[in-house]
Amino acid sequence: MNAVLKINGTEKTFDDGLPPTLSALLSKLQIDAATVVAEIDGEIIERKNFAQTELKDQMGIELIRFVGGG
């Protein structure tokens, strides 16, 4: 079943089903969870809850991190 997530403004299709949780998504994208903060449909997800946060088709996910800035 095809499922879609909107990640950082871009739609991403998962042909073999959605990763079940936010942690699983980050592993699939090869992103170190310790360096990011996430927002799903406008709600901030605390890092300690990444493993319990279930993903559903059509969710809007923002993955954000610190960068150099003034």
Binding site: Q30, I31, V36, I64, F66
Partner: peptide
């Protein structure tokens, strides 16, 4: 000071700020 931006999906592990020793410098987002 540091800024917050979307993770760049083409360079997902560009974590420049890991270089900063947070025991020496307070981060001001």
């Amino acid at each position: 000071t540091v800024a917050l931006r979307r993770v760049d999906m083409d360079d997902a592990n560009d974590t420049m700020l890991e270089a900063i020793d947070r025991t020496k410098y307070q981060l001001l987002p």
